[in-house]
Design a protein around this nucleic acid. Structure first.
Lengths: 142, 142
DNA sequence: CAATTTGGCTACTAATTTTGTAGACTATCA
DNA sequence: TGATAGTCTACAAAATTAGTAGCCAAATTG
């Protein structure tokens, strides 16, 4: 019941990109060194984020990454689902037909409800919110 | 971000025990065959549930298991946490001192909030609720 | 156009976690 | 005292996650 590194790193990555929004492209290696993460691994996360339509990239000498839309329009939920896959507590929520018990399963309903709740919390936060809070914290003494 | 089999089986186990509450001890092997699970694996889950004070057991010839308190007083949250451990999305919620970033980490707050929400949903359901719903569903045509 | 930079993508390996099994031990009852 | 049934630790197999390697494709610059 833990978020994997993909979700955690993905969130940090996108908040970083949000902080640089409107200031041109950001290099993957800069992102990696700022966040103390392996560039090669971030590379993979970027693949997912790009395919989900959350970041745009440009290759070659003056290349880099940037958010595909303003940080106000990107919710943390989208980011996490892009890199982690659907946020359900159990697979049978998405594929109830695979389980013969699903029709008579009381716990299934509960797992569904928890999933909805998780998505709601994550959908409340946009990258703009988070980037702003981040900046406030940076300024604080510690 | 999935619940493991421990949480899923644990819930089914306890709902089964709730349905038999007040009717004497239940044998592990009966529990296992009713739920189509390995007795040896359930054995382990029972260990956790007993240590958490949720079930009582008796050894020997007329032994078996039963809930340690009435089903109305056991919440799904207790069951899941007993077999899965603390329901936090990230470890740094429980151990922020291990991460140098924790003080300035904006995502930490979000993960904490999600954790609270998950616990709230699971705390709303008691084993009595679930066992009753279960019985209703059993009776239904399909 | 050739060299260099930077992202795109696939495949693989290593580490970790999850899922289960084996087996020896202990209590209880007839 | 022998059979039954829970207790507990350790181990093994399977699955998932985390991270690396390496080659390809596009853009820029000289």
């Amino acid at each position: 019941m833990k978020l994997s590194t993909r979700g955690r790193y993905g969130a940090r990555l996108m908040i970083d990109l949000a902080a640089h929004y409107g200031k041109g492209l950001v290099l993957l290696k800069d992102l990696a060194s700022r966040q103390h993460l392996s560039a090669k691994y971030l590379d993979q996360l970027m693949l997912s984020l790009r395919r989900a339509g959350l970041v745009k990239s440009k290759r070659g000498v003056k290349g880099g990454f940037q958010l595909a839309k303003p940080p106000e329009e990107i919710r943390l939920l989208e980011v996490v689902e892009a890199v982690e896959g659907p946020l359900d507590l159990v697979d049978c929520v998405a594929h109830p037909e695979g389980c013969p018990r699903s029709r008579k399963c009381v716990t299934l309903e509960v797992w569904e409800e928890v999933g909805r709740e998780i998505r709601q919390v994550l959908a409340r936060r946009t990258l703009a919110d988070l980037a702003q809070r981040q900046q406030q914290k940076e300024g604080a003494p510690f």
